[in-house]
């Protein structure tokens, strides 16, 4: 019996987890509840409040701008999370060695993460803009008309996805590297004795051992990308005509542009429920499979 039972065990459990839980309750849960309460009000930034029941939610259901932002958000997450995960995994496998070269490469692939979103979008604006951008120069050399990446309704979302993948690679790579450290070395030795091919070693040993990390990366990235904001605000301003407006950008515009705090709060709660639903589904999917094993 490794888990300690009885009163003493309870006490120390709360002693260890208590400080975090206390802060969690006051700084996250309490404001979240305030926000939920706010979503049933017509409210502005300066304390005006009128109870309107589900009015804000009803408005959201019939607001085409909001619908489009929900759709955009999902498309973006789908365009970002799978490629990001695969690329990060491959890079981690390639860079999981103790050589100096590997360390340098790890630094390189991590380097974009140190930039703030302001700068990332500024850099990518200059790469993607059809006037003088890097991609435009290349396509002109190839004799093609440069594509309007930042102003064509079909191109802005892919542009945001590419920018985000470039910016976000570092952390998943680190997680995979940390995960690879937990693979017991003897399994590999056994595989080497078996003369397994590189490919089958990957499928039979590496990937199953990385399952926890893989799920962690996918869950985290899904939750993060569903809340994508800065890139859309700064690179395309949600345009053209709302084609790249994400849910958080919608919320931001409603709250700080229109001062319609209750409406923004309602949209934020819907986003919360969506992220929550997806995260929980992912979490249950693994814990159930874990139990089956």
């Amino acid at each position: 019996m490794t888990r300690s039972r009885g009163k003493a065990g309870h006490l120390s459990g709360y002693a260890f987890a208590g400080p975090f839980l206390l802060l969690y309750a006051t700084i996250l849960v309490y404001p979240l509840l305030l926000g939920i309460w706010l979503s049933f009000q017509r409210a502005d930034l300066f304390g005006a409040r009128t109870w309107v029941g589900f009015d804000n939610y009803a408005r959201l259901l019939t607001d085409p701008t909001f619908h489009q932002s929900v759709l955009n958000t999902f498309v973006l997450a789908l365009l970002i999370v799978p490629p990001l995960t695969v690329i990060a995994l491959l890079l981690a496998l390639a860079l999981n060695r103790a050589t100096r070269t590997a360390a340098v490469f790890r630094g390189i692939f991590f380097s974009s993460s140190v930039l703030s979103v302001t700068i990332v979008t500024l850099i990518w604006r200059f790469i993607l803009t059809p006037d003088a951008g890097l991609v435009a120069e290349i396509s002109q050399v190839l004799g093609r008309e440069p594509l309007p990446f930042l102003s064509h309704p079909d191109l802005t979302i892919p542009s945001l996805a590419i920018t985000t993948i470039w910016w976000s690679l570092g952390f998943p790579i680190m997680l995979f590297l940390a995960g690879l450290q937990q693979v017991p070395p003897d399994i590999y030795e056994a595989a080497a004795l078996d003369r397994s091919s590189r490919w089958s070693t990957f499928w039979r040993i590496t990937l199953p051992s990385l399952r926890r990390t893989l799920v962690l990366v996918i869950m985290l990235q899904t939750a993060a990308q569903l809340q994508l904001f800065g890139q859309a605000q700064l690179l395309t301003a949600g345009g053209p005509s709302g084609a790249s407006r994400t849910m958080v950008l919608f919320i931001y515009e409603v709250v700080f542009g229109r001062w319609d705090l209750g409406y923004g709060a309602a949209a934020a709660e819907i986003l919360f429920l969506l992220v929550l639903g997806i995260t929980l589904a992912q979490y249950w999917a693994i814990t159930r499979r874990e139990a089956e094993r």
């Binding site: 987890a17 849960v29 404001p31 904001f229 923004g264 709060a265 919360f272 992220v275 929550l276």
Partner: peptide
Amino acid sequence: LDFPFRRTLFVFVLLGLAVPEQAVILP
């Protein structure tokens, strides 16, 4: 460690992952 509501509290903390900053920043 084992303590009452351990799993519940853990899931409760996980819910926090889903909270968008915009939902809490003004309150």
